[in-house]
């Protein structure tokens, strides 16, 4: 019965998310409020990891199959899509590549500057430009 109580907790957080979506006039879907609430509840130990972990794993595992029924609705939209599908495909491919390059390189730049430069080593390097970090006098 552990799945049952775990599922109840997940549903409770989802309902709270729905309440937020109804009460706040922001264009944010209920699932995002729910996700943020769940994350905060875990961080502040209001909900313990063991209280939702198994049911959560199961839900995430079965999530992909839930999108098949709405996606099959494509056949009802064929008149809209058929004249423009090459353009759609071009946008999808180019955007995916752009996002990858931008995110990857910004991340690499940020990570390189994350380690604070070692002032002492830098000073040694300036004083003895030919020595490797002042190690080979």
């Amino acid at each position: 019965m552990k799945y049952f109580s775990q599922f109840a907790i997940i549903l409770f957080v989802s309902v709270l998310g729905e309440l937020c979506a109804m009460a706040l006039p922001l264009p944010i879907p209920a699932c995002i409020y729910g996700m943020v609430l769940m994350f905060m509840a875990l961080c502040f130990k209001i909900i313990k990891l063991e209280q939702v972990d198994d049911a959560g794993k199961f839900m995430i595992e079965v999530l992909p199959v839930m999108f098949t029924p709405p996606a099959v609705g494509l056949i009802a939209l064929w008149d809209v899509i058929s004249p423009i599908w090459p353009q759609l495909l071009v946008i999808i491919v180019i955007t995916t590549a752009v996002v990858m390059v931008v995110t990857g390189h910004v991340a690499q730049f940020m990570l390189r500057h994350e380690q604070k430069p070692d002032v002492h080593k830098l000073w040694q390097h300036i004083r003895h430009p030919n020595s490797f970090h002042g190690l080979s006098h």
Binding site: F7, I10, L11, V13, S14, G17, E18, A30, C31, G34, M35, V36, L37, M38, F39, L42, C43, L49, V52, D53, A55, G56, K57, M59, I60, V62, L63, V65, M66, F67, T68, P69, P70, V72
Partner: peptide, 22 residues
């Protein structure tokens, strides 16, 4: 009959907080 599957999308998405927390 298939749309009942999609009924659980919101609670399943809420669960994404769990791997993030890990």
């Amino acid at each position: 009959s298939a749309h009942y599957l999609s009924y659980f999308i919101t609670p399943a998405t809420v669960c994404f907080a769990i791997p993030l927390y890990k």
